[in-house]
């Protein structure tokens, strides 16, 4: 059997083409993503993620995950504590300043406010990708790059 290479390749194509199809919900989410475009916002890139640290996690396995986002003139740090069905966020803006912070996830959004020391909290955010859209009036808004929490 399989003497013929063209035959093997055609069987391979048949075996691999239909396997593990993309769920319709995944394609629908991809199509809907364009609606989250915020061209007016500057992008804050993910500069550090404690989940990627190769060293033993500081503070032990129960320590929250720490994400650091940076844009020119603004650092957004956020600590994420996980429970089974949601995430609690405690964040800080540096330099310290007040700002409205819109926490966006696919299918929802919640607005919180950083106090004059730059601190903000957002309990019970669903797991999955989020982006924080920070409005430090009168400056340009800053959006953190989408990150799965």
């Amino acid at each position: 059997m399989m003497a013929d290479s063209a035959k093997m390749i055609s069987e391979l194509r048949t075996a691999l083409t239909g396997v593990d199809p993309v769920p319709g919900s995944v394609t629908a989410a991809a199509l809907a993503s364009l609606g989250y475009h915020r061209p007016e916002a500057r992008l804050a890139e993910l500069a550090a993620d404690s989940a990627l640290s190769s060293m033993a996690v500081r503070g032990g396995p129960y320590a929250p995950r720490l994400l650091t986002f940076t844009a020119p003139g603004l650092v957004i740090e956020v600590e994420i504590t996980s429970t089974d069905d949601h995430r609690d966020l405690v964040g800080h803006l540096a330099p310290s300043r007040t700002a409205d912070i819109e926490i966006r996830w696919p299918g929802g959004t919640r607005t919180t406010r950083a106090d004059p020391t730059g601190h903000f909290t957002a309990p019970r955010i669903p797991h999955g990708p989020i982006s924080m859209l920070c409005h430090p009036t009168p400056d340009t808004p800053v959006a953190t790059t989408w990150t799965s929490i």
């Binding site: 593990d20 993309v22 769920p23 919900s25 995944v26 989410a29 991809a30 993503s33 364009l34 989250y36 475009h37 915020r38 992008l43 696919p106 999955g128 990708p129 982006s131 959006a143 790059t145 989408w146 990150t147 799965s148």
Partner: peptide
């Protein structure tokens, strides 16, 4: 989807990877 699945991710995690990737392209 195939890239996520070939990293041995379950369907829910693979869906998160795909969605995060598309949202990162949008931004």
């Amino acid at each position: 989807w195939t890239i996520a699945r070939m990293h041995d991710l379950d369907a829910e995690s693979a869906a998160d990877v795909c969605q995060t990737t598309w949202l990162r392209l949008v931004e």
